[in-house]
């Protein structure tokens, strides 16, 4: 089987990826040609560009983790620090029973994005005070893995429950938090390399505490 990296080639901003115009995420069209707008890998079978770095591109439906940073004067809005260039806002309904305090950790889903830099959040839920780590948002997809394989694997080996926000904040609680953290940071560092699931599995097996 061919490793996934071999089918892709490294591109930098400005590189022409297609001689025709095609709407591709992380690319732009100029004079009828398609150019990459980021540093990443171009997959010429799928015509997609996987960025290696970069700011988070928030979308409706994204699960995020944030910290309540301030409460509106009438108590009906909560500003949420998402530790990114975009901030979050929870608007409590008329008969809402929400009762967050400043500093509370919450998970929520993006309902809509206003002016490209404010995320209106829905379904907010408080998480208890526990370990939080921050990784680069572009690496979140690898931490979760296809069909959540990666995150399930970490949870299985460490007994740790985790919530991974698309904004790069990860909440960890219970089990071997230290090992789970190490695994996540290793994924962040090696996200671009093939055979990652196997290597993480080896690492988790080697370091697993005796039962």
């Amino acid at each position: 089987m061919i490793g996934w990296k071999e089918m892709r080639h490294f591109v930098v901003p400005g590189d022409k990826v297609l001689d025709r115009q095609m709407r591709i995420e992380n690319a732009y069209i100029e004079a009828g040609k398609t150019h990459s707008a980021v540093m990443g890998f171009y997959d010429d079978e799928r015509n997609s560009i996987i960025p290696l770095e970069g700011a988070w591109k928030p979308r409706t439906g994204d699960l995020v983790i944030g910290i309540v940073s301030s409460i509106g004067r009438n108590g009906s809005t909560y500003s949420i620090d998402l530790t990114e260039f975009i901030s979050g806002l929870v608007v409590a309904g008329k008969f809402s029973t929400l009762d967050f305090k400043e500093g509370d950790i919450i998970e929520a889903t993006i309902q809509e994005i206003e002016h490209k830099n404010l995320a209106i959040l829905e379904h907010p839920k408080a998480l208890k005070m526990a370990t939080m780590i921050k990784i680069k948002p572009v690496k979140v997809a690898r931490v979760i893995g296809r069909a959540e394989t990666m995150i399930k694997q970490i949870s299985e080996y460490t007994g740790c429950s985790m919530v991974v926000g698309k904004n790069g904040l990860i909440w960890l609680d219970g089990g071997d938090v230290a090992l789970a953290t190490d695994a996540i940071l290793k994924i962040e560092k090696e996200a671009h390399l093939s055979g990652l699931t196997e290597r993480i599995k080896d690492m988790l097996e080697k370091n697993q505490k005796g039962e």
Partner: peptide, 11 residues
């Protein structure tokens, strides 16, 4: 800038 993943039209 490219290393930061900033979207650009060129290097």
């Amino acid at each position: 800038l490219a290393n930061a993943g900033v979207k650009m039209r060129d290097l």
